[in-house]
Design a protein around this nucleic acid. Structure first.
Length: 221
DNA sequence: TTGTGTTTTACGACCTCC
DNA sequence: GGAGGTCGTAAAACACAA
């Protein structure tokens, strides 16, 4: 950005906060031509206020706590507020700005992480629900299968009775038209239960669809 | 002690807004 | 055009296992 201003500021700051922030660019140093990204030496204040290349300075707990409080109040940082906080903590305004920038980034990442976890939980619940429903469907299909067997059994019994008696049964079910499990047509991919096609006999149940359904449900449940 | 992974501080490039 | 933002990353500081 505006390095000239930054450099001027640093000099100014070194005078304002000699014990905190030190101008670290050696006198007479010629700036390298602007490059996309250059290796940098991070330099910060020496405890004795001397001008020298030093290790990066970590903010004190007190400073960090105060910055956290200010960040809690407001994530953005206007110039006036920045200067005020900097003066309050004995920091370079630039340091305050940088700290806020980094803090915003951390905050954003945290928010993204929380959002991701929320979505993941929702997804997991949906998957769980899907499994539960699938197993329920399987159970119901098993019930249906058992019911069909029972119908078959009853139909055979009725047929046996009617052959012994001249009185015709009031039961209208004709066993050879009763769909049995073996009569299901299984579609190509062979996923037995899922792809069963129920062949409704032409003249037996078609006119009494509702009754037939109720009859079936009574057997199942 | 040292190698390694993570966090923190700082900067450069670029973008947006006034 | 300047101020302040984001993004990506360097490098120091730190934590910790081996």
């Amino acid at each position: 950005m505006n390095h000239k201003v930054d450099d001027q500021n640093m000099g100014f700051i070194s005078q304002l906060y000699p014990d905190v922030y030190t101008q670290i660019v050696p006198q007479g140093e010629v700036k390298p031509p602007k490059r996309r990204r250059k290796k940098r030496k991070v330099a910060v204040a020496a405890g004795d206020g001397s001008n020298c290349m030093l290790r990066k300075r970590k903010l004190t707990d007190e400073q960090v706590n105060m910055l956290e409080m200010r960040f809690g109040d407001e994530h953005k940082l206007e110039s006036e507020r920045k200067d005020k906080i900097a003066a309050e903590l004995g920091l370079d305004p630039r340091q305050v700005a940088v700290w806020f920038q980094n803090r915003r980034t951390r905050w954003k990442n945290k928010r993204l992480e929380d959002e991701y976890n929320k979505l993941k939980n929702a997804h997991d619940n949906v998957v769980l629900d899907k499994c539960r429903l699938e197993s329920e469907v399987l159970k119901l299909k098993e019930h249906l299968y058992d019911a069909e067997r029972e119908i078959q059994r009853l139909a055979e019994r009725v047929e046996g009775c009617s052959s012994n008696s001249p009185v015709s049964s009031s039961v209208s079910i004709q066993h050879n038209e009763t769909p049995f499990f073996g009569d299901y047509e299984v579609e190509e991919d062979g996923d037995d239960y899922d792809n069963m096609v129920y062949p409704v006999p032409e003249n037996t149940y078609i006119d009494h669809g509702e009754e037939w359904m109720n009859y079936q449900l009574n057997i199942i449940f």
